[in-house]
Nucleic acid binder design. Structure first.
Lengths: 277, 277
DNA sequence: CAGTGGTCTAGACCACTAG
DNA sequence: TAGTGGTCTAGACCACTGA
């Protein structure tokens, strides 16, 4: 399957591999070989129909795969574009704790877009151990890097999370105005109300964007994303807050540096998978 | 949009929301409400065409979304089936190190399916700092839980990773036979050759299954998956091995318990997202 | 305005499953 | 063998983009 420069790979119509998958492989390879640079426009779907001699359905199935993989971005009325590489979020996990997380050379901006009371009923209320009639704070953030929206998070906060917060709520009956719209609302909670998280139970899974999420993130409906759920407790195991974050899978990857201890037991240590063996 | 029991939601043809997305929401809700249990067969695509009055294209777009989200499983010749819930992989991340990872109440079986020499050229060779002419070991594993294949990993190992391994290679010129086919190959490396990993650089991103991966995992081409890449180094920063693992996103989620230190700095502590703010 | 991608229809053929 | 999902074709209309 090795071809000299300039030659054009074609779809093998006798192959059992579906056309759309062969096509997706061909285009991915051409992108990786630099035929088009990030930001360049791909040929139109009609042009690809001509070049490969298949129907538009096949062209679009192939582009669907490339898009979900983060290789291209598409928008109505515009030709499809080769995407910028994914952002990378880094954290170092040493012998003691998390340390120096960052998106290198980039600033990730969190922006509070909504703050409100919600009824405690349902899943979140149960997790936070708040009975049905009571209120919970819901704080909605968007997160962007280099102007690109990459994530969306919703934090659900118990009014009883700290004495300071409970007092402020009792005084006003409202979400304390100290939680202002801005990038540092989470820090405000920690510094002004003394909310101390001791244990975070974080779950990472894959999902697809629903209409609300797709709209806020400017991404297509149904595209693949990370779903991070985190239940935070204090040292006495009392639940404080629950956070649900959606991170665009086509824009982001996570990177952890794990420092192993020499005194470890016999468990496998070759990468994360070893722990699953 | 609240309907009484037994009533059937229909597609709103005047809505700007695409038919396939409305349909996917309807079916997801019916699954979550228990209209069908895990293992039950959904109506056939033809029956859904009849019920909702849309073309098969729309039906299939909707089922694509549900499948990628892990809600249903599909197979040629058989009706689509409501899927079992995702597996959950757990680890506790304490003040000191990883601890007690597990798939609760389940055993995850790693099985070595292939072991061979490969040329060092390319990406992996550069990462492992091995020059082009030399060989690298490639160990391929599959991982399954409760009989369901959920992951696939390939470990690339430097022959120079430890004096013991280098000696064994010099003796035989082959992959030492001590690495036998079986679930404990990674442990063998640690215990028999004294390979000590000090630092693991793990990257987590989203990808889609290629033909090779889909075949080994018995999953559809192009379905969403986690891609874990791990570069493992010893205490002197010398690269030892590189592992690339594919974990089915429709079958798996990861769960971490983070124990925060009281002496932490001012960084936000409300869940993982706080580190991104 | 023409070009383009997003969505939808109505068909077709095939390989696979299960009765 | 009948039913089913996987793939593919050839059209259509729309909303949006950019010249």
């Amino acid at each position: 399957m090795r071809l000299s420069e300039g030659q054009t790979r074609v779809i093998d119509r006798a192959s059992p591999i579906p056309f759309y998958y062969q096509l997706q492989e061909i285009l991915k390879e051409e992108i990786e070989q630099g035929r088009w640079q990030p930001g360049d426009l791909l040929p139109s779907e009609a042009a690809l129909e001509q070049r490969f001699g298949v129907s538009r359905t096949v062209i679009r199935q192939a582009l669907d795969v490339l898009q979900a993989d983060g290789q291209i971005s598409r928008a109505k009325g515009r030709r499809s574009m080769v995407a910028e590489p994914k952002f990378r979020w880094e954290a170092t996990l040493g012998a003691h704790s998390w340390n120096q997380p960052a998106v290198p050379n980039q600033v990730m901006l969190g922006r509070l877009v909504d703050a409100r009371h919600v009824q405690a009923g349902g899943h979140v209320g149960r997790l936070l151990d708040v009975h049905d009639a009571a209120d919970i704070f819901e704080l909605t953030y968007t997160h962007e890097v280099a102007g690109r929206p990459v994530a969306l998070s919703q934090m659900y906060l118990r009014p009883q999370a700290s004495p300071g917060l409970a007092q402020a709520c009792a005084d006003t009956g409202e979400l304390p105005t100290l939680i202002e719209r801005g990038p540092d609302a989470a820090d405000q909670l920690a510094s002004r109300y003394g909310i101390k998280v001791a244990i975070s139970d974080v779950t990472v899974e894959l999902t697809q964007l629903n209409a609300f999420e797709a709209d806020l993130l400017g991404a297509p409906l149904g595209s693949a994303a990370f779903l991070l759920s985190s239940l935070d407790r204090d040292a006495a195991q009392t639940p404080l807050s629950f956070t649900r974050a959606i991170v665009r899978g086509d824009q982001f990857r996570f990177s952890l540096v794990l420092h192993q201890r020499e005194t470890e037991g016999p468990t496998g240590t070759h990468g994360l998978m070893a722990y699953m063996t």
